[in-house]
């Protein structure tokens, strides 16, 4: 049997955009860690967020729920949460509930950054 699945979060930024990089398993046990990171960013008036999911192996409804909880407040403040580099198996979970209509999902971080640039 596997050990408890790991989960790690790394923060970085490109100009005024915050990049949250997720690694491992985002489920009911680990989702509060992501929730805290997003809350901290919002408290510091950082509302332009890209979530880098290239190393995310698993997401459950608790992970989806974190994005649902904050997205509207973030957009009300002129920002957004854009999701980038999802593995196909992670994308399929987002797709189950129609999330691609609600969230901008981009193939690369660069394309997600461009979405924040003024036209």
């Amino acid at each position: 049997m596997n050990q408890t699945n790991k989960f790690e979060i790394q923060l970085s930024s490109i100009s005024n955009i915050e990049i949250i990089s997720l690694n491992g398993y985002l489920d009911a046990h680990t989702a509060p860690q992501l929730e805290k990171i997003i809350q901290d960013l919002m408290q510091n008036n950082k509302y332009k967020i890209i979530v880098d999911m290239k190393n995310l192996d698993y997401i459950s409804s608790a992970g989806l729920g974190v994005f649902m909880a904050f997205i509207e407040e973030i957009r009300d403040n002129g920002g957004d949460i854009k999701l980038a580099e999802l593995k196909p198996k992670v994308y399929k979970v987002f797709d189950l509930l129609g999330f691609p209509i609600l969230f901008k999902i981009l193939p690369t971080i660069d394309e997600a950054v461009k979405q924040f640039e003024p036209n």
Binding site: A62, E73, L97
Partner: peptide, 24 residues
Amino acid sequence: KIDINKIFRERKRGGLGIPIIKKI
């Protein structure tokens, strides 16, 4: 049946588990 837009508007973080079970 889930109304994803309602959950979105109400800024809810829960309630997504059963819809996922039903979809799968």
